[in-house]
Design a protein around this nucleic acid. Structure first.
Length: 104
DNA sequence: CCTGGGGCAGCCG
DNA sequence: ACGGCTGCCCCAG
């Protein structure tokens, strides 16, 4: 499957992302912490940026710590749309973390 | 609200 | 193998 041809780091990031339920979000930083590399948030973002299956992998549920939805391979607009479809309200490119944040 | 500096896996020469 | 970039970032100032 898609977890094959990628590094350990990358696949471990993907696995965690798959745990985030619909209607919830988490941050790049949270993922880094969950991975035991609290300072690797930038690398986490990169891993998702190159993810080969943006459809099967809900990387749109990963937002920035400052509550901005952040970037997306297929366009920020698309990311916002996907979130809204899942029930996460997005206003001015921002989400209510206190309300939608998923904790590992 | 904007800015600089920090931090890290991947990619490329 | 080595070193210098480059990002779906973060946070203090």
């Amino acid at each position: 499957m898609f977890l094959d041809d990628m590094t350990e780091f990358q696949s471990s990031v993907i696995k965690l992302v798959l745990k985030v339920p619909r209607g919830k979000v988490t941050t790049y930083k949270e993922l880094a912490i969950a991975l035991g590399r609290p300072r690797a948030y930038r690398a986490v973002a990169n891993a998702l940026a190159k993810n080969p299956h943006p459809i099967k992998i809900p990387c749109h549920r990963i937002v920035r710590s400052d509550s901005e939805i952040g970037g997306y391979q297929l366009g920020t607009i698309r990311k916002a749309k996907l979130l809204v479809e899942e029930g996460v309200e997005v206003r001015n490119k921002k989400v209510d973390l206190a309300k939608y944040m998923f904790h590992f």
